[in-house]
């Protein structure tokens, strides 16, 4: 791996017998510490608990997981997942469109277009998504789905706009000059020559931003859109009772980790496949 990144192999000697032993001991200590914490957590979870006078069985007791043998519960969870994916999909498409529009306006040759676009873009980039969602929810009458979707679209659109602008700025100047000298208009040069290259170059960054967007659909929990977290942790919890809180939480967490890790893995593969230029 010679010539690789600093963190790969330069910072320490390839370990000899003594260092290997020491490293093994540290590893075992780390493992033991983690194991003790996990063990303690499992013990505490498994112990029955007194909660406001009622004795709850331990968290691994079958009576706190039995709802998951009911297919209707899984249908409810599936609907929640669908609601999350639906919001994420619609918001992604809109965010890409908003991003292209923002980067076009921001790189305009006319100052009276460029400067207001820059101000608006900086404004949205500095806002919490949650606040944009609340604004849309309270000011319009679109309902919670569109509040989540439009909030995500505007915010992530501003960020994707900046990503695209950086992509265009990183292109060799000759690309634009060649386009213009062929007699294409500025808009034609942008859409046929600069954007396709910028998009390709920035694809991994854009996909990473779309993963963030997917995670941010969970803010629907706060503004009242029934995505997966609200479905499990509010609605199903209220319906099935508080003793399923832990099991519902674990299921939600596993679903989120599963979806996000697979999308992230896809993004990494995309980044590797990017042709060397």
């Amino acid at each position: 791996m010679g010539g690789g990144p600093v963190s790969s192999n330069v910072l320490f000697d390839s370990p000899g017998p003594k260092a290997r032993r020491r490293s093994l001991i540290f590893s075992i200590i780390a493992l033991v510490v983690v194991a003790v914490i996990v063990f303690w957590a499992i013990l505490t979870l498994a112990a029955p608990r007194l909660s406001s006078g009622i004795k709850l069985p331990g968290s691994f007791d079958p009576s706190r997981w039995d709802i998951f043998s009911d297919p209707r519960v899984w249908r409810d969870i599936g609907l929640g997942v669908l609601a999350t994916l639906e919001a994420a999909a619609v918001a992604s498409v809109l965010a890409l469109a908003v991003g292209v529009a923002f980067s076009l306006l921001r790189t305009s040759v006319f100052p009276w277009v460029r400067i207001p676009a820059t101000v608006v873009l900086e404004f949205f980039r500095g806002m919490p998504v949650l606040l944009i969602m609340l604004f849309i929810l309270l000011v319009s009458s679109f309902g919670t789905f569109w509040a989540v979707v439009l909030g995500l679209a505007v915010y992530n659109g501003a960020i994707i706009g900046e990503i695209l602008r950086a992509g265009i700025a990183s292109l060799p100047r000759g690309q634009q000059e060649a386009g213009l000298s062929l007699g294409l208009t500025r808009l034609q040069t942008k859409s046929f020559i600069e954007y396709p290259q910028a998009f390709r170059q920035m694809l991994p960054v854009i996909v990473a931003q779309l993963v963030v967007l997917l995670k941010d659909t969970s803010l629907g929990y706060i503004v009242g859109y029934s995505e997966i977290i609200r479905t499990t942790m509010t609605e199903m919890l209220a319906f099935h009772g508080d003793r399923y809180k832990f099991s519902l939480y674990i299921i939600t967490l596993v679903i989120y980790l599963g979806v996000n890790l697979s999308v992230s893995a896809f993004a990494r593969r995309l980044a590797r496949r990017r042709p060397a230029r």
Partner: peptide
């Protein structure tokens, strides 16, 4: 250099980066 530390750090990083803040 300690493999155990590296592993723990990777698991922590990946788990938290893929969990929404709301959760």
């Amino acid at each position: 250099p300690v493999a155990g530390f590296r592993g723990a750090a990777v698991v922590y990083t990946e788990a938290l980066r893929n969990t929404p803040l709301t959760l």
